[in-house]
């Protein structure tokens, strides 16, 4: 349903963790590893974020766009669907779906501004063509739920409003992983609150107990997020570029 997560296509499409990071055969043939695959998706999430800042759309649009991009790559290879085109096209489609339409020519303009690299150079026509291919790759499922709304409510309920900015930032960073494809959004929000309460040394044990959620799941998500932050220090631009170069799609 459009407004009930439990009956939504988002809920029905949640993946097992091991299915979210499957490298497609054409990409594997080009030497793309699981690590490369994750890196490229993270880089594209950043790209979407940068573009979104330029065209000024809400955080929710960014989150939807990143989710679309991640969903596309559960079904399509990067060799066939160049990430450097899929990323802006997902933002373009997400903006329409979230009622804040952005013009394709504005995107094309900012693409040129952000990257001088030829490999990122795509025009309006390319974005429009990719929009349709993305619609098809998504199997026309466009409604996405995000942790932001739950977060606001949950923080209020826990009396932790002062953590809003901190946890909001954590939630933003979860889009650099595939969590949104795997876990219900409110559990991602809870994991972020859990991290925040540990980090800021706030006792939330009884509050979490009252929620009657599976704390193992929440803690596992929290561990994934913390792992991500830990590994992130070792991620360099060069590694990302090396991964992208393996795809070598555009002459």
């Amino acid at each position: 349903m459009a407004a009930n997560f439990w009956t939504s296509t988002h809920y029905k499409q949640l993946l097992d963790p091991e299915d979210a990071d499957v490298v497609h055969p054409p990409d594997r043939e080009r030497g793309i590893t699981v690590e490369d695959f994750k890196l490229i998706k993270m880089q594209m999430a950043n790209y979407i974020w940068k573009l979104a800042q330029s065209v000024k759309v809400r955080q929710r649009v960014i989150a939807t766009a990143v989710t679309y991009m991640r969903r596309v790559y559960t079904r399509k290879s990067m060799s066939e669907y160049d990430p450097r085109l899929v990323a802006p096209a997902c933002l373009y489609l997400a903006a329409k779906a979230e009622e804040s339409t952005v013009q394709a020519k504005a995107l094309a303009f900012y693409i040129r501004k952000i990257y001088s690299d030829e490999k990122y150079r795509y025009e309006v026509k390319d974005i429009l063509e990719m929009e349709m291919k993305i619609l098809e790759a998504l199997n026309y499922y466009l409604v996405v739920f995000h942790p932001y709304r739950s977060l606001t409510h949950l923080l209020q309920d826990a009396g932790m409003e002062e953590m809003t900015q901190f946890t909001w930032g954590l939630v933003n960073d979860t889009y650099k992983m595939d969590l949104i494809l795997v876990h219900p959004p409110h559990l991602i929000a809870l994991a972020c609150i859990y991290i925040a309460s540990v980090y800021k040394d706030k006792d939330t044990t009884s509050w979490f107990e009252e929620l009657r959620v599976d704390m193992n799941v929440v803690k596992n998500i929290a561990v994934e997020i913390l792992d991500f932050y830990e590994n992130r220090t070792s991620i360099s631009e060069e590694r990302v570029h090396a991964a992208l170069n393996k795809l070598a799609m555009k002459p």
Binding site: R149, H153, H186, L211, V213
Partner: peptide, 16 residues
């Protein structure tokens, strides 16, 4: 989930 968690998925406010 308990009332609030479930409600949080359904009731929507303008995003912060």
């Amino acid at each position: 989930q308990r009332g609030v968690a479930n409600q949080a998925q359904q009731v929507h406010f303008f995003e912060l």
